[in-house]
């Protein structure tokens, strides 16, 4: 190719890369009005919604762990049994490994051990 068209290609590449960089810089946080509106909505309902579902679900991974602490579909000792739950099985938004104890807090152990 002539160095002319090669230069043009390099310019196009540079423009695309810069555009992508600017896009990431601009959209790496929610646009401010949206965050403010989301906060307003959460204030109205007292904090509701957490996981990747807009429907109420019996799986805490899904709609909100404040409503459910245990997943009905989790099959205990089976390895990766959580995958059987369409909610946990999505695991596109999985909780960290600390979640089991933190979710229920000390009350979980308490309920078992208390006389």
């Amino acid at each position: 190719m002539t160095s002319d068209s090669s230069n043009r290609l390099l310019a196009v590449i540079a423009i695309l890369v810069i555009a992508a960089g600017v896009a990431v810089a601009h959209y790496r946080q929610p646009v401010p009005p949206r965050a403010a509106d989301a906060a307003g909505f959460q204030q109205l309902v007292g904090g509701l919604g957490f996981g990747p579902s807009v429907e109420l679900s019996t799986c805490p991974v899904q709609f909100d762990p404040r409503l459910e602490t245990t997943c009905n579909a989790r099959t205990g000792p089976i390895p990766a049994g959580g995958l059987l739950c369409p909610g946990c099985g999505r695991f596109l938004f999985s909780f960290s490994s600390r979640s089991a104890t933190h979710l229920t807090g000390p009350s979980a152990t308490r309920n078992v051990l208390a006389p």
């Binding site: 949206r34 509106d37 989301a38 307003g40 909505f41 919604g49 807009v54 429907e55 109420l56 709609f63």
Partner: peptide, 8 residues
């Protein structure tokens, strides 16, 4: 646009 969870 305020929240995904308001949908339903």
């Amino acid at each position: 646009e305020i929240s995904p969870w308001q949908s339903q």
